[in-house]
C-alpha cells in the first residue's frame, strides 16, 4: 500500500519525537513529579529553574535509562533557566532549530517525566510575543505559546518542530496562567552564560523614568519614526547614569542602537552583554539627539 500524506505526516511526527527524545532527559530534583531537561551539550542539561527544589542529590535519567548524578552549574530564576553539569558526556546532543518558530506551525511538546519513556502532545504555535517581564524579575525578548496539552512533568522539556529540531524549552514557571516556551536561541544563549558564569548578570543604570510621547519635531530630529521614549525623572548620585552625564529631563530613546519605546525594551537590553561595558545611550536633550557613553553597572 502506498503511503498517504497522512501516514507520511504521522511517520514524520513519530520520527521527530524519537529524534528529539534521545536528547530529552528526566530531571530528578524535586520531591513530587520529576521534570524534563534537554541535553544541549554532551555533558550539560538545560532545564527549568523552578523544578530544582534541592541543591544536592540531583540526577538525570537519559534516554537509555541510565541515571547520572549532576551538579547545578548555573541557575537564573528570572528567566527560569538552569544548567546541570553531568560528570561525563552522554548521549545525543539536542539540535536547536535554525528557523525560528512561526505562527501556526505544528509542534510537539516533549517530556520525560518517568522511566516509561518520552511523552508527547501535539499543538500549534499559537502566539509569539515579547519582550515581556517574566514576573520573576527577568526579561524575555521573545516567547512562544502553543495550544498543546501539557502533561505533568513537562517543564524543562523541548518544543519540537516537525523536523525534530528544537524550537524552545517549555516551562510553567514563568506565568501564573498558561505555560510558555522560551525560544531555543534565547535559551541556548542564557544556558551558555550560566554554564560559564553560574548566573546571569543584569545591568543597572540608576535612573527612574516614565514613558512619554515624542512630539513630531523630536522624531524629525531623530530622523526616524518613534512614538515614545523614556523621560528621565531622577538620576541617582554616583550611579552609572550620572557618571555618564545623564541628567533629569533627558528622554532616553535608544540603547546600543536599539530603540527604547518602553521600559521593557530597556530591561531587555540591560543584560549580561552590556554589564561593565561602555554602552551608547541615545537621549533627546532640548529636543536634540545626543549620545552618552555609559558604563553599565551590575545590579
Amino acid at each position: 500500500m502506498s503511503k498517504t500524506v497522512l501516514m507520511e505526516l504521522s511517520d514524520a511526527l513519530a520520527d521527530a519525537a524519537e529524534q528529539a527524545g534521545r536528547s530529552t532527559v528526566l530531571v530528578n530534583a524535586r520531591r513530587r513529579m520529576p521534570a524534563s531537561g534537554i541535553l544541549f551539550a554532551a555533558d550539560l542539561v538545560l532545564t527549568a529553574e523552578h523544578v530544582l527544589e534541592k541543591n544536592e542529590d540531583i540526577s538525570v535519567v537519559e534516554a537509555e535509562g541510565t541515571e547520572i548524578p549532576v551538579k547545578i552549574a548555573g541557575r537564573d530564576a528570572g528567566t527560569d533557566i538552569a544548567v546541570l553539569k553531568l560528570d561525563r558526556p552522554i548521549g545525543t546532543v539536542a539540535e536547536a532549530t535554525k528557523s525560528p518558530a512561526r505562527l501556526g506551525q505544528i509542534a510537539l511538546v516533549l517530556a520525560r517525566p518517568s522511566r516509561d519513556g518520552i511523552e508527547a502532545s501535539l499543538g500549534t504555535v499559537s502566539s509569539i510575543g515579547g519582550p515581556v517581564q517574566t514576573g520573576r524579575g527577568g526579561m524575555l525578548e521573545r516567547y512562544i505559546r502553543t495550544d498543546s496539552i501539557l502533561y505533568p512533568g513537562f517543564s524543562g522539556g523541548p518544543l519540537v518542530a516537525a523536523d525534530g529540531t528544537i524550537l524552545g524549552m517549555n516551562t510553567s514557571g514563568l506565568s501564573n496562567g498558561p505555560a510558555i516556551t522560551i525560544p531555543a536561541d534565547i535559551a541556548w544563549n542564557i544556558a551558555g552564560i550560566l554554564a560559564q558564569h553560574g548566573q546571569i548578570k543584569r545591568g543597572y543604570l540608576g535612573i527612574r523614568s516614565q514613558t512619554v510621547d515624542l512630539p513630531s519635531a523630536s522624531q524629525e530630529a531623530l530622523k526616524r519614526k518613534q512614538d515614545t521614549g523614556l523621560l528621565v525623572m531622577s538620576v541617582e548620585n554616583n550611579s552609572p547614569a550620572s557618571k555618564g552625564g545623564m541628567i533629569v529631563g533627558d528622554i532616553l530613546v535608544a540603547i546600543a542602537g536599539n530603540p527604547v519605546l518602553h521600559h521593557d525594551e530597556l530591561f531587555a537590553r540591560l543584560n549580561g552583554d552590556v554589564v561593565g561595558k561602555s554602552t551608547p545611550l541615545e537621549v533627546l536633550r532640548g529636543g536634540q539627539p545626543q549620545t552618552l557613553n555609559i558604563v553599565v553597572g551590575e545590579r
Partner: peptide, 9 residues
Amino acid sequence: RGIVSALLT
C-alpha cells in the same frame, strides 16, 4: 484527533 502521547503500563 490526536497523537500517541505515551506508551505506559
